[in-house]
């Protein structure tokens, strides 16, 4: 039996405590089949073995708790790493830039990595903590995104309760397609900037020299 079978068997037998614990551990960054757990929980709701509101509350609480642990690890455990970077040449500027980036794009990033590009979620918890992103804002966006993720997956499991395995395989592959598309867009944009000749800058320099 693989880990997926073990965890789903435990979920079927012991219910909510297993759901909370596994989702919390996965949110910290340990790779566990949590999408499968949520979709399976949705199918157990359909079978009358679990209650919908309890599954949503417990799974969201597990995810949010794990995210807070990840944030705290980044915030208080990441000091050494940050100090090392700060001591390097231009280190302080780089950290300031990273903090500014996190403050500007943090909310969008936190919200989207909770439910749409979930594979990046644990990383964003750590980096949000390291960049000292304001905790109250982190918490609010985290709760909104996680509740949306849980509701989405549990309801999918409830409505397609007879085919949870195939559904999870599709969702898992789709999540990586979205991550790949976003990465390709960023890299493509970067490459375009590299390939564009810096004409306006050159002209400005020539004018200034004259």
């Amino acid at each position: 039996m693989n880990i997926s079978d073990q965890l789903l068997g435990a979920l079927s037998q012991y219910g909510l405590p297993v759901l909370f614990t596994v989702i919390m551990i996965a949110a910290v960054g340990i790779p566990l089949p949590i999408s499968m757990m949520l979709v399976a929980a949705g199918s157990f709701v359909e079978l009358g073995e679990m209650k919908l509101w309890q599954v949503i509350v417990v799974a969201s609480a597990g995810a949010v708790t794990g995210d807070q642990i990840g944030y705290a690890l980044g915030r208080w455990g990441g000091h050494r790493v940050i100090e090392r970077i700060r001591r390097r040449e231009n280190g302080a500027t780089r950290i300031a830039q990273a903090e500014a980036f996190a403050k500007r794009w943090g909310a969008t990033g936190i919200f989207l990595t909770r439910w749409l590009i979930t594979p990046l979620g644990p990383w964003l918890n750590l980096t949000s903590g390291m960049a000292a992103y304001p905790w109250t804002r982190f918490f609010l966006w985290d709760v909104s995104g996680e509740v949306l993720w849980v509701v989405l997956y549990v309801l999918l499991g409830k409505f397609f309760s007879d085919r949870v395995q195939t559904l999870v395989e599709i969702l898992g592959n789709l999540a990586w397609v979205i991550v790949g598309l976003i990465a390709a867009l960023i890299l493509g944009w970067k490459l375009l900037r590299y390939l564009q000749p810096a004409e306006p800058l050159k002209r400005a320099k020539i004018v200034a020299e004259r």
Partner: peptide
Amino acid sequence: EVIRPWMSIPYIAHSY
């Protein structure tokens, strides 16, 4: 669905 060791009898009955 392919029957897996985690599935309960009510789930298999529902799925099939």
